Computed example of a mutant assay.
Amino acid sequence: MSADPNDFIAGLPKAELHLHIEGSLEPEMMVALAERNGVRLPYADVDAVRAAYNFTSLQDFLDLYYQGMAVLQTEQDFYDLTLAYLRRVAQDNVRHVEIFFDPQGHTGRGIAFATAFDGIEKALRDGADELDITAGIILCFLRHLSAADAMATLEEALPYRDRIVGVGLDSSEQGHPPAKFQAVFDRVRAEGFHAVAHAGEEGPPAYIWSALDDLKVERIDHGVRALEDPDLMLELARRRTPLTVCPLSNIRLCVFDDMTAHPLKMMLDRGLMVTVNSDDPAYFGGYMNDNYAAVRQALGLTNEELALIARNSFEASFLDNATKADYIAEVEAYVRAVQA
């Protein structure tokens, strides 16, 4: 084993549970797709796009994120985007992914639901064959839009129900509490989907409570502000509710001043089921291993703690129990080999 502690991370099997596929749009691909589809971008070249990937708030990021979506127009575009992501994370020994997909960001600009969905799903199937990565799709509602719009999107997705593993809630938290979508998530669960929601990144701990109690979600995406509420911390630990934490995203969006201030280690120490993920890696400057390395270095995480996070990522997934056990066994075998 090399003396470089990041070598342990490089070989560690892991799952990614918090990844917006539209947020994996690298500047080079954005420019290439714009040229392919005749889309005019307000940037002269790739360097100008990359320079624009510099923001100080969630809203600044979202403005750029939705602008970037304009280049995604055909099934082939969504296929290329998704397969490029899979090939990149295969290099980080990511073995399973559950990706977020924002249909309203596409249907709202005239792209058919099927165009986006079919391109993403075909890439996931081909990625499984080429890269041996298992995958699921989580359809997300944009919370800055209405609950009625979310319900209409759910109706449109129902014919694809056997190809969608779960339903989530993302976009800007402020002013859009989870309870706004309670009736929609009642329907989500009635239709048999798993449920997740972004809460407690930009929004307060009360939003995490609401996601748990009003939406009855199985995972909290982000959840880093839970430490502000001791009772919430105890409840998350009691329920073993997985938290899909995205460290580099939290720093780029100024949720915390720097990585040394990130609460991930405190969350681990208090028994929370924490996972590490990349969120929107093209925009936040880091894929999975970059996020693992950043918290290891800043927070002094041990190999044992990193392996725990990796085990959590598989346990928190929506895979069947037998497949979860197989992946966790891969983690255990890797740890034993390193120790030997």
Results as ranks from 00 to 15, higher is better:
V46I: 11
N93M: 04
Y53N: 10
Y85G: 00
S57C: 06
Y43S: 02
Q67R: 13
S57E: 06
A70F: 14
Q59N: 09
V39T: 15
G110Y: 01
T74A: 07
G38F: 00
D47Q: 13
V97C: 04
P103T: 00
S57K: 15
D77T: 00
P42V: 09
Q76L: 10
N54M: 04
L64N: 12
D92T: 02
F113K: 00
F100K: 04
L58M: 13
D63C: 10
T82G: 05
D92P: 04
R95V: 04
V49C: 07
R40W: 03
R88K: 15
D60I: 08
T56H: 15
Q59C: 03
H106M: 10
N93S: 12
A51I: 03
A52Q: 14
P42W: 12
L83P: 07
Y43W: 05
V94R: 08
Y65K: 06
R87F: 11
V71P: 15
F100G: 09
N93I: 07
A51V: 01
F55S: 04
V46R: 10
T82M: 00
T82V: 02
R87M: 04
L41P: 14
L72W: 02
G110I: 09
H96W: 13
L62S: 15
R40L: 04
F61H: 13
E75K: 09
Y79A: 00
Q76G: 07
A48D: 08
H96P: 06
T74S: 13
Q104P: 05
Y85P: 00
F55C: 05
E98K: 12
G105P: 02
R50V: 10
L72V: 02
I99S: 03
Q104K: 06
E98N: 07
D102E: 13
Q59W: 07
V39Y: 15
D47N: 12
Y65V: 02
Q73Y: 01
Y85W: 01
D47K: 12
V94G: 02
L83S: 08
V94C: 08
L72T: 05
I99P: 08
D47R: 13
F55T: 07
Y85F: 10
Q67V: 07
Q91G: 05
V89Q: 01
L41R: 07
A48G: 06
G110T: 04
D63A: 14
Y85I: 01
D63R: 14
V49I: 11
Q104Y: 03
L81V: 00
Q67H: 15
T56C: 08
G38V: 01
L58E: 01
V39W: 13
Y85E: 00
V46Q: 03
A90K: 14
V89P: 14
V71A: 09
F101I: 14
H96E: 03
F55R: 07
A84G: 10
R40N: 06
G108Q: 11
V97W: 12
Y85H: 09
N93Y: 10
A70Q: 15
T82R: 01
N54P: 03
E98Q: 11
R88C: 06
A112F: 03
L83T: 10
A90D: 07
F113N: 01
G68C: 12
S57W: 14
I99W: 05
Y66I: 05
V94A: 05
D47C: 09
D92G: 09
V97F: 06
A90S: 11
I99T: 11
D60P: 13
L81I: 02
